[in-house]
Design a protein around this nucleic acid. Structure first.
Lengths: 350, 350
DNA sequence: CGTAGGGATTTGAGCGGTCAAACACAAGCC
DNA sequence: GGCTTGTGTTTGACCGCTCAAATCCCTACG
């Protein structure tokens, strides 16, 4: 029974102590661990024996200091509110999982919401050498963060395109939202829809445009001329309550392609209140394939982001940058897939 | 323009270099940073000047090695699926925020779902000294993890009670779910309900009992005899579709007190399908005060967990354990509060 | 039989801080 | 004037590893 509050320092074995017990030099022990092929069979066996007996593991901090690498990367987010159906959290988990496969770990860093706050935080991370790299999980138009990181030689990958940045020098991975919305368009057209409305926030030269334009392009490609009236702009889902009825009454869309699941969910509820059966009378689609899309009724057809693939690509680039083998910045658009559910499959023309 | 792929090592200033430039010893520089009052005014000014000029920051890793503390704590979770409306993620953010106020950081560690997987992971963390402490964000009946950590001298706090553990030696913080459900009971009784049903998974000698018993106790305290028939047991929310109609038909509850928001949300949808107006005809309450509770219609009356307070308490205990000043393990139940919304306030007796 | 070559192992110097103890030096006291 | 006291500063060891270079020993070869 240990004295409470007095955690005994507990001396753990070190490279030295293992070496002493095995009757070899510290470096040989190190080699057994890091370059086993350099050590003679019998020596290795003996050393491993001692290691096993004492349950030795190298001290990570000492390693980090000597190797000048923490094997930590920062998942860096703002303190602000995140939207409901965001997949940021599952994404962070995925990033940690993939990182673990490469003996890297993810630390969660939270700074203010403004670019300058975040950069101030990077500055600390950088100067204190507390992480090997940074993952920026969201980007916006005019984002100044990636450039700062690149300039300061910090390995970086952004999840999100360098919107409206003519000459990005950093690595990024993003999901092709436009493609996702094309899938939506095709799916809806195939289902028999002719009047498909887009529901989302105003254009922002960034992600909003990507999704909206994707839908429009999808329609055009199938020979459908988009109707500008079938474009409902609301800042946030809560605006739908007021705005959606008019759109429905004036322009009679049969399908609502929404910017994300939160919009789709709200749309469904408004439809319901108006006495329209969501799915059956008016089809609805979302984006992100969040939990919400699965648990609500009707279940929402949604575009699923390949977060596993994104996490893998990010690590690939990060590791290359860390190894110094990165030829050029990674610029990669991944393809989302459509998950069809009741909110579109039960539709039948009036 | 830097050569791509060849991140230059970039020599940063060290204690030594600052010392040399300021014409003092390395220790004086260290003191300026860690114990400014020990340094004479003019010396301090001169050193700070150099520090500022070179934008010096101490290398975290070197610090960690010398001080034998990483200033990292592990937020340790299983790889498994987390339920929809869980507040684990917001909680982790809160933990990181509060940690930052104490110059500590949170790393996300993911292991298998079984206790033994997690313990194997702890073993690594412990042997490699890669973190100073561990936060276990969920506990279950018969949890073997906290004991392991305590035995190995690892500072630990669990978010969750030591369910069914007669003699826990570890620190924990939890939210008093029973109290939360009492609030629900009182609120519903005040609103005029007489037939209040509980909806949730089977008893498990743990959290399920806590919530259920809290509700029952709340009823009894107000002089209402609980009706065993008003207890709907379903493994998961999806079971409600099948089970709820019978409960409603056979026992006519006017309110459904649900185990969490996911159950509440599903209940609302089933009510709706049955032609009953959720909120107005049958009141519904949830637990967790998740995003879902706010965005769904009707908005769900829910019990909000004080995650900020929990995060603060956890750090308090963690820091005390780290400092060796912890007298006894922390055992703390925090009080949730009720957030009333349309799902109960619009109810009117038939 | 001396020596070049190569695998196995050791040596020694960092990495960049912290901590404890030693050391100046001036003031305060009897 | 010697002694204590105390503040400000320096010294040196150490944390536990990795890396580069040196050393050792045995074999192969001319």
């Amino acid at each position: 029974m240990s004295t409470p509050g007095k955690t005994v320092p507990e001396r753990r074995p070190t490279l030295q102590s293992i070496a002493a017990m095995a009757g070899v030099s510290h470096q040989t022990v190190s080699n057994v661990l890091n370059a086993p092929d350099r050590v003679a069979e019998h020596t290795r066996a003996r050393v491993l024996d001692v290691i096993e007996q004492l349950n030795y593991r190298p001290n990570e901090t000492a390693r980090s200091l000597a190797r000048r690498s923490t094997r930590l990367i920062s998942f860096h987010i703002g303190a602000g509110h995140h939207n409901e159906a965001s997949m940021l959290d599952p994404f962070m988990r995925e990033l940690a999982k993939v990182g673990a496969e490469h003996a890297y770990r993810v630390v969660l860093d939270i700074a203010g919401d403004e670019d300058e706050d975040q950069i101030a935080s990077y500055e600390e991370l950088h100067a204190r050498r507390s992480v090997d790299g940074v993952v920026i999980p969201e980007t916006h138009v005019g984002d100044t963060r990636p450039a700062w990181l690149v300039e300061h030689g910090m390995p970086t990958v952004a999840f999100g395109r360098p919107w409206a940045d003519p000459d990005p020098r950093h690595s990024w991975v993003d999901v092709d939202g436009g493609h996702g919305m094309r899938l939506v368009a095709e799916h809806l057209l195939q289902t028999g829809h002719e009047r498909i409305a887009y529901v989302g926030p105003p254009r922002n030269r960034g992600m909003e445009d990507d999704r909206l334009d994707g839908l429009l392009a999808g329609l055009v490609d199938s020979g459908v001329e988009p109707d500008p009236a079938l474009h409902l702009v609301v800042e946030s889902p809560s605006g739908l309550r007021q705005a959606l009825p008019a759109l429905l009454a004036d322009h009679r869309p049969t399908a609502l392609a929404c910017r994300d699941d939160a919009f789709a969910f709200e749309a469904i509820q408004v439809l319901d209140e108006l006495g329209l059966r969501p799915g059956e009378d008016v089809a609805v689609t979302g984006f992100d394939d969040s939990d919400l899309a699965r648990i609500c009724r009707p279940q929402i057809t949604s575009v699923a982001q390949p977060i596993r693939e994104v996490a893998e690509l990010i690590w690939e680039s990060l590791l290359a940058q860390l190894a110094g083998t990165a030829e050029a910045p990674l610029r990669r658009l991944t393809l989302p897939r459509l998950v069809t559910r009741d909110s579109t499959t039960t539709w039948s023309p009036a």
